[in-house]
Simulated assay, not measured.
Amino acid sequence: MNFRIVSAFITGCILTLIVPLSAQSASKERQNCVTVITSGSTSRPFWSKVIEGATQAGKELGLKIYARGTVEDSDSAGQAFVLDNTMKLFHCRGLIIAPSDVGRNQDITHLKAKGIPAIYIDRDTGGDRLASVTTDNYAAGKLAAQKMAEALGYHGNVILFRLKPGVASTDARERGFADEAQKLGLTIIADTYLGTQVGNARSRSGEILDQFNQIDGIFTPNDTTTIGVLIASEKHLNQSNVVHIGFDEQKIMVESLKKGKLYGYVVQLPFKMGYQGVWLIHQALQGKTVQGQLHTPIEFISRPQSNAAKATTASEPR
């Protein structure tokens, strides 16, 4: 049997694989696989749920799902490398991708020219993608501001910690929070970027927290910023009544919520995001028209002792 040697960049590592060559099997793979490219490590809870949803849809539709990611959300060059190598390795007929930035649009245009359709998930940077399945991130930021304003009696000094410029999803959340917070009477006393790594978020937020004697509220737009600020707060925040609202969900956030260190957080439905993405690709491959922006629901998770443990806002496709 003949073999070929190929390399793929997978979550920060270059793996060399020996793949048997078979014209029949290669053709079958092209007919029955979809590539999922995340923006960040596939081991992160959010992205692993996206992949679970995509895999479930793949089982129902008879499609093999190949998922790959990068180490960091902001690694545009790394994502381009992963995308190129994964498409060459598996020859899939469809792509689902969470674009790290607008740089992916050019890659999607090239794939479209080859007859390979793409669906964007989590964030939508436009271009030649057929459709997108995302959270309404602007609305999610507004929801966080509304919950904070309610808790603070519609006045108070709050800090907006941002992730990184150019990340479409968190940019929208931050903008939604800022617009709604100021509209509802809150004063943003600090507004700064923390970076995509928990360590950087911890150190940078600690420096900001040290600058203020009275902080009433804090908003963090994703899991890494939320965790970094929670860790920094142990040493740099002497107040126990700060209304900290985060985004997405990880174990440390759940525990912090139970202990009263976190007021609440907004969660998305990543499983549904991946699931719907695969169904859309399947429809496109069947020759059906697929277009538009689909929004999956969001939920606000609050402290267990609250009378309203969950408040759900659902977004309909548009």
Rank of each mutant, 00 (worst) to 15 (best):
F3H: 09
I121Q: 04
L257W: 00
G206R: 10
S240C: 03
K64M: 05
R318L: 15
G103Y: 05
R318C: 10
L63T: 00
V34D: 07
S240N: 13
S27F: 09
F247G: 04
P99R: 10
L160K: 01
P20W: 10
G287W: 12
P297G: 10
F212L: 02
R162P: 00
M253R: 04
V34S: 09
S39W: 04
V198E: 15
F247I: 01
E150R: 04
G115V: 08
W279F: 08
K235Q: 15
P165F: 07
F3A: 10
F271R: 11
G206Y: 06
F46A: 08
R104F: 14
Q211D: 08
K49Y: 11
P270Q: 11
K142S: 13
G53R: 10
R175P: 00
K112V: 07
K28R: 14
S48L: 14
L230M: 00
A139T: 09
E180Y: 02
D122A: 15
K251G: 13
A140G: 12
K28C: 01
R44M: 15
A181H: 05
L160Q: 12
T192A: 07
G40L: 10
I108G: 00
A181W: 05
G246W: 01
A26W: 08
T55A: 11
G40K: 07
A144F: 06
L89Q: 14
A190M: 06
F9W: 03
N200M: 14
G292A: 15
G166F: 10
K258S: 04
T35G: 06
Q214V: 04
M148W: 04
K272T: 03
I215V: 15
N157V: 00
V34Y: 06
A98F: 09
S233I: 01
G274F: 02
A309Q: 12
C13F: 02
D101H: 04
W279D: 11
Q211F: 02
T196H: 03
G217N: 07
L61T: 01
F81T: 14
F46M: 09
P165M: 06
I227V: 15
R4K: 14
H244F: 08
A149E: 01
R318Q: 14
Y263Q: 11
K259M: 01
T296Q: 11
D107A: 04
R4N: 13
N137W: 06
A201C: 08
T296D: 10
P270K: 07
